[in-house]
Design a protein around this nucleic acid. Sequence first.
DNA 1: CTTGATTTTGAAATTCAATATCAATTATAT
DNA 2: ATATAATTGATATTGAATTTCAAAATCAAG
Lengths: 141, 141
Amino acid sequence: MAKEIQIFIDYLKKKNLKLTDQRGRILNVFLKTQRHLSAEDLYNIVRKNDASIGQATVFRTLKLLCGADIAKEVDLGDGKTRYEHKCGHEHHDHLICTRCGRFIEAMDPEIERLQKKLCRRFAFTPQYHKMEIFGVCKKCR
Amino acid sequence: MAKEIQIFIDYLKKKNLKLTDQRGRILNVFLKTQRHLSAEDLYNIVRKNDASIGQATVFRTLKLLCGADIAKEVDLGDGKTRYEHKCGHEHHDHLICTRCGRFIEAMDPEIERLQKKLCRRFAFTPQYHKMEIFGVCKKCR
DNA sequence: CTTGATTTTGAAATTCAATATCAATTATAT
DNA sequence: ATATAATTGATATTGAATTTCAAAATCAAG
Ligand SMILES: [Mn+2]
Ligand SMILES: [Mn+2]
Ligand SMILES: [Zn+2]
Ligand SMILES: [Zn+2]
């Protein structure tokens, strides 16, 4: 929690930017929420505490948080970009149900290892990846 | 080539739809192109041969081709959805360079196997997946 | 403190891919 | 032929995301 704020401050400094009230408040609210929310979702929550914050700032701050590696974009198939924070959450991928939209968070160390190996084969330096498996969940069968 | 058209006809029949002139012509042009083009890219090419085709039809046909499993949506990180056809191309994933935008097509049977295994663990029936690794390519190092 | 340069912000306008609308055309069935 | 359904393209609309811009806040000297 405090750790994320410090990471954010360091990142901003590196980019010659400052931790403003608005940025701090957006980050705080974001870290407290359930993950996988859209910029608009977050904006609506932030607005309850502080009606003066504009959505442009929420969009901008979410981009910064991704740059700082505190947040991650997630594409769950609906039209809008969603974000999840990494506060206390290991890297994982998603199994997304095409019927009900629910999703499972999963991670396989063996796959992660082979992904790195695959990159090495092409002299490619991996930074991050998205793996999304679409299909039908247990409940929808 | 003829095979894809037959697949398309069968798919359309299943959906109570017909293979029209426009749909046929769009598919033909699409199969002849390099892959990974946007709906607009394809529209511009189609238009050269037949100025009367509307872009709505190109959008609609690309959706149908995805449904028929002849085309596949690809997200290469720019704002727009791109499409690649599967004519003579095995399934593969993408290593995308965040510097220059170039990408490598790659596939690892071992990863594919483990993906299926991962799904089984969650009683999840996979239909398709996206795996995109972002990083820095050989040339950009 | 001033002063001036820089950054940040929020409201509003804009962008742009994608979708919906709709009247006209075409195909199909009886 | 007649009714029904599907298809089309021009156009309008949507909606997430970005850009613009003037005002406000922050900072850096002097
Ligand atoms: Mn997640
Ligand atoms: Mn490809
Ligand atoms: Zn489901
Ligand atoms: Zn590159």
